[in-house]
Nucleic acid binder design. Structure first.
Lengths: 270, 270
DNA sequence: GCAAAAGTGTTGACTTTACACCCATGC
DNA sequence: GCATGGGTGTAAAGTCAACACTTTTGC
């Protein structure tokens, strides 16, 4: 069992490793949208039609190679900006996908032994949310199409798998953190917030108990304002309590919270 | 806001991106160990002394460049094998770290504007556990030293940050999943399992309530055997219920479970 | 018998869930 | 008035934490 081979540390002699693995960053961008006749909102995401082989003509997650002067997070943010023209309400790393043959074309999948026709790509994937108030300003682009997250076609590469995992993480996260707010604007009613939870969790929630749970979490503040013009009792408007934000995110969350504060100061985020 | 710049999809023209960002895989390897006089166990991890600049002489996480023919997970596993001579009880991706200047030397940290002397490295970091029964067989290597996770010196690069995050994830995970078992051998007593929880969470647990919680999770099976020779009532031996394993891990967990089953068949894991 | 840890039982505090019911508005 | 969702109250069920107590071994 004992081998004399040295235990590597980094950085490594560049000549040994040069360019054989490409690094890309992709982003799963979620937003709440309304489907024609349906009165309720559901999760949608933008996809890009591929212009090159492999998988030409199929849809894929927006992304691109990691530029040497951008952090992974900034790269994901700029992908989002290119795909939507918007700024995210929330942005978090999802997973790094690195199977050897994941970027081979579909015809190669059956025969795993075949050497892939293109270089190997490891993708660091982020997921993001877009505030509902921004969704209307989404930039229109010929090769980008928004689709319902629960009714996707077969996507290029392993991107169906990736979206499934993003949905799984989103469902979990909405139950123990405050991300749901990032799908809404500055001010919102409890019914709107509840609709975000319902769309993500895929089930109806009791309005009475929902109100109490959110109140107990201390994550929102009553603005005192109300919405009038509804044909029922006017609901209160709340806003997110930023001072409580990210308190439950651990070491990395803390860094992100600091980055978020900086972004707020620059006017880049809600 | 609308830019004519195309939304990238992959793979990319290799000439554009060639070799400017290195990809490495590191592993935070945890094991339960006993500290001299202390009768309780605590978390330890192996670290590698750096032989090159930057950070020469300091300790770093074991790792190395991603080899083009290995998946990220296999690469992390082989790092673990090189560092310890062992096979992991559990292995999971932690995070991809990709700040631009994270691999600069310590003297460069103050002046962020300085171009780093070495190439940019993105590290995909895994964390792993080693079963207690294997710890005794750990391979000894001149440049590797095991240290207590709660009393580390200043490490090279951003590796203190990474270990902190791994500890945070481990604490969370032990509360809602079954990973604690992966720190033990095939058969174990409830007291041993409880000690794993206590070492990770850093607090004592009520033996009575602990027993009930574990029983409720259905994660263990009574083997019927007992340990004799203690100077008190002989405790039962339990074993992990593999059929229930990973049921709570979502899409990616399912893939891992399948991979784990395959590894078991090949005799590579417990 | 005694010490020590294994293992069981019980109780009060707290949380969650279901659902009844009142409130305020537009029509 | 009446329909509709906003918002409050409440009680049953379930979960959790503390701790008293019994069991089984070695010495």
């Amino acid at each position: 069992m004992i081998q004399p081979e040295p235990v590597d540390d980094r950085p490594v002699d560049p000549a040994r490793q040069h360019g054989s693995v490409q690094l890309a960053v992709s982003t799963v961008i979620f937003a709440m949208r309304q489907d024609g006749d349906d009165e309720h909102h559901s999760l949608w995401l933008p996809l890009v039609r591929r212009l090159r082989e492999p998988y030409r003509g199929m849809f894929a997650l927006p992304g691109g190679p990691l530029s040497p002067d951008l952090s992974l997070e900034k790269s994901a943010g700029s992908t989002l900006e290119r795909a939507t023209g918007l700024v995210p309400g929330y942005l978090e790393q999802l997973y790094a996908f690195g199977r050897v043959h994941r970027t081979s074309g579909p015809e190669d999948e059956a025969s795993e032994a075949v050497t892939p026709p293109c270089e190997r790509v490891v993708s660091v994937v982020y997921w993001a949310s877009i505030p509902a108030t921004e969704v209307g300003h989404t930039r229109v682009h010929e090769n980008i199409q928004w689709m319902r997250a629960d009714a996707l076609p077969r996507l290029a590469f392993d991107h169906n798998e990736i979206v499934d995992y993003a949905l799984y993480r989103l469902k979990n996260k909405v139950e123990y953190s405050r991300i749901a707010h990032s799908f809404l604007g500055e001010e919102f009613t409890l019914a709107e917030l509840r609709e975000v939870y319902e769309a993500i969790l895929g089930r109806r929630l009791d309005p009475a108990n929902f109100r109490r749970q959110i109140a107990a979490s201390k994550s929102i503040i009553d603005t005192g304002k109300r919405i009038e013009g509804t044909r029922h009792r006017p609901p209160r408007l709340f806003r997110y309590d930023h001072t409580q934000a990210f308190a439950d995110q651990g070491p990395l969350g803390m860094y992100r919270a600091a980055a978020h504060d900086a972004a707020v100061k620059r006017g880049e985020a809600t």
